[in-house]
Design a binder for these strands. Structure first.
Ligand SMILES: [Mn+2]
Ligand SMILES: [Mn+2]
Ligand SMILES: [Zn+2]
Ligand SMILES: [Zn+2]
Lengths: 132, 132
DNA sequence: TTATTAAGTTAGAATTAATCAAAATTAATA
DNA sequence: TATTAATTTTGATTAATTCTAACTTAATAA
């Protein structure tokens, strides 16, 4: 948790609780899921704090904000480059670890400066597939 | 516009207007942008109709719904497989036409059935880049 | 220690995108 | 031209996220 201090942030119980919940979490939780989990141990925490903290961590590159679910943002403590697949039925998000070659043909980007990239897969997870 | 009928849909002025606006449009507009554009020529159209029509067209595979902008959904009349880049500053979305090899190592997907895939690039567009 | 204070938290209101429900309208057809 | 199922409309509703302003606290330095 010294990590928080190294980012130039104050070490608060709320931040500790949020980071503890996220640490090693591969479920790509939404803000609400984070709130619910943290509120169990820390009942007075507010949504605003969850959003504030996620925004701060995102800016400090401590987490990733995923845009793979059209309904809500998902958060990922794994900031290493990797990809994702979402189940279009239950909206579960899983990691896709594969090393794709995503370099662009110079001409192609209309002069954009590329900051990051990732592949998004859409599909049906095994659990949902069973139910059909 | 016979295209609408071929989908088994009724040919309404609202749908014609929406499709005319989308046809050949490479700006990946949001529902609001579509509403505003169509409302100019067809002032009585409602948001519900825009959303209904987009949902219907999406189901019939007549358009794509993009999840690249965390704030709002974007729509794309180009249903050919291609990729996108979004300017993280002004949120402009541009096409990326490139043929990436996105096949997954069997083992890797945890049993998901893949339905579709696309690469998302994040960056800064030339216009925004100038302003810095 | 204690005092100071900028940073962080909180509750609740506000905003925004998207969905829903029910009544009114209309395109397609026979 | 009448019928009717599909579509549109309005307005309310839901849900995610942001905002505001008052309150609290972690960090620091005397
Ligand atoms: Mn991940
Ligand atoms: Mn496109
Ligand atoms: Zn699933
Ligand atoms: Zn831009």
């Amino acid at each position: 948790m010294q990590r928080i201090r190294n980012m130039g942030l104050r070490l608060t119980p709320q931040r500790i609780a949020i980071l503890e919940y996220l640490d090693g979490n591969v479920n790509h939780p939404s803000a609400e899921e984070i709130y619910n989990a943290v509120a169990k141990k820390y009942p007075t925490i507010s949504f605003a704090t969850v959003y504030n903290t996620l925004e701060t961590l995102k800016r400090k590159k401590g987490i990733l904000e995923l845009t793979i679910d059209p309904r809500r943002r998902r958060y990922d403590p794994n900031t290493e480059p990797h990809h994702h697949i979402i189940c279009v039925q239950c909206r579960k998000v899983a990691d896709v670890h594969a090393d794709f070659d995503l370099r662009l043909p110079e001409s192609n980007v209309e002069g954009f400066k590329v900051l990051s990239k990732q592949v998004e897969f859409y599909g049906i997870c095994p659990e949902c597939d069973n139910q059909n």
